[in-house]
């Protein structure tokens, strides 16, 4: 009984402490909630912007985050908070709510899951903070602006390239291995859907295996080795992100199936993102196609739209960024033209 009393005492103390904190707290977010349209402009007081990112590991998203931070600071935001949920949707929901607590003027979200973050977006709406969806769409709540590429189209473009390169081959004769990355990523899902749609349009392409690898290098390596044991005549491999190509190439070398482009035994490799190493590989004939997304554009546009909002300038509901199909034939030209984030100076 005495122990129980002590526990109860602790609870009471905790409640009293919280009440004390309540009384002593000078201002909460409720007090200056941004329900009034635009309370201040850039330069008036402290301007804070938050970016809740699904992940921040990988060259592409780091480029996006850096571009966002640089642009936001250049445009006059004093505090730039960038958080990474490492593809955990519940973590991202929590982080967005923490950004609300931080009294951000605008919150940008690169969502871990298009449906899962909706309640957090609704919480932002409730707090009067505009939400900008970056890179990936969000399936609910009030989104101020969506800045994205067309992931379905990106996946389909890779399939179309495989189809074009093997045009004239017999029905179902070109066996394709589809490596699936992170199952919780909507971009991965959309690229996979786009790739399947693209393959259906080319009679000769047959996806013989789809392997979930959780974007883990070891699993990808083993998946490729195992897939070739069952289907030694695989002619093309698609992975959703460029960075996942390295273990694929290692596995092909290990099993003696690596031949450079131009060799009749060459296994075509395609991916999306346009990372530096994979763009350089194009010229060396290691891989065949990389869809370069505009990661600099994602970050910079998000910061610009946010700054415009704070300054009272409206924006389009949707801003589409460009994706560029890169192959050995055009990568050098595109790099010289400064059109590839992965090969920018």
């Amino acid at each position: 009984m005495k122990k129980m009393k002590r526990v109860l005492l602790l609870i009471v103390i905790a409640l009293m402490a919280s009440a004390l904190v309540a009384c002593s707290t000078p201002a909460t977010a409720d007090d200056n909630s941004a329900n009034d349209e635009v309370a201040k402009r850039l330069g008036d007081g402290v301007n804070r912007i938050g970016f809740a990112m699904a992940e921040i590991t990988g060259q592409a998203v780091q480029t996006e985050a850096q571009a966002f931070e640089d642009k936001a600071k250049e445009l006059g935001f004093d505090d730039v908070i960038i958080l990474s949920a490492e593809n955990s949707v519940e973590t991202q929901v929590t982080q967005i709510k923490d950004l609300i607590t931080s009294e951000c003027d605008v919150i940008c979200v690169y969502s871990a899951d298009a449906d899962g973050v909706v309640p957090a977006v609704q919480a932002c709406n409730e707090a009067g903070i505009p939400v900008i969806a970056v890179d990936r769409g969000i399936n609910g709540g009030e989104i101020y602006c969506t800045i994205a590429s067309n992931n379905i189209s990106d996946g389909r473009d890779v399939a179309n390239y495989f189809g074009l390169m093997t045009e004239g081959e017999a029905e179902d004769s070109v066996k394709v291995l589809h490596i699936i990355g992170n199952l919780s990523s909507t971009a991965q899902k959309e690229r996979a859907d786009g790739f399947r749609i693209g393959c259906e349009n080319w009679g000769q392409l047959e996806i013989v295996d789809e392997v979930a690898t959780d974007a883990d290098a070891d699993r990808i390596y083993n998946a490729v080795v195992d897939a070739f044991k069952v289907n030694p005549d695989i002619k093309a491999i698609f992975v959703p992100y460029d960075q996942l190509l390295s273990p694929v190439v290692s596995a092909l070398k290990e099993i003696g199936m690596f031949y450079p482009a131009g060799d009749p035994n060459h296994v075509m490799l395609g991916a999306v993102d346009g990372a530096t190493e994979q763009l350089e590989w194009l010229s060396e004939g290691i891989n065949d196609i990389s869809i370069s997304l505009d990661f600099l554009g994602f970050g910079q546009t998000a910061a610009s739209v946010a700054a415009d909002y704070v300054n009272g300038i409206s924006s389009n509901d949707v801003v589409l960024t460009k994706s560029i199909v890169c192959t050995a034939g055009n990568v050098e030209y595109l790099a010289k033209a400064g059109m590839l984030w992965g090969l920018s100076e």
Binding site: N87, S88, V89, E90, V93, D113, D115, G116, V117, V118, P119, Q122, G140, L183, S184
Partner: peptide
């Protein structure tokens, strides 16, 4: 509580 909080059910939640 988690489903209510997220407004959806996701097979990848609570991994850690």
């Amino acid at each position: 509580l988690l489903v209510s909080n997220m407004g959806s059910a996701n097979p990848s939640v609570a991994e850690n």
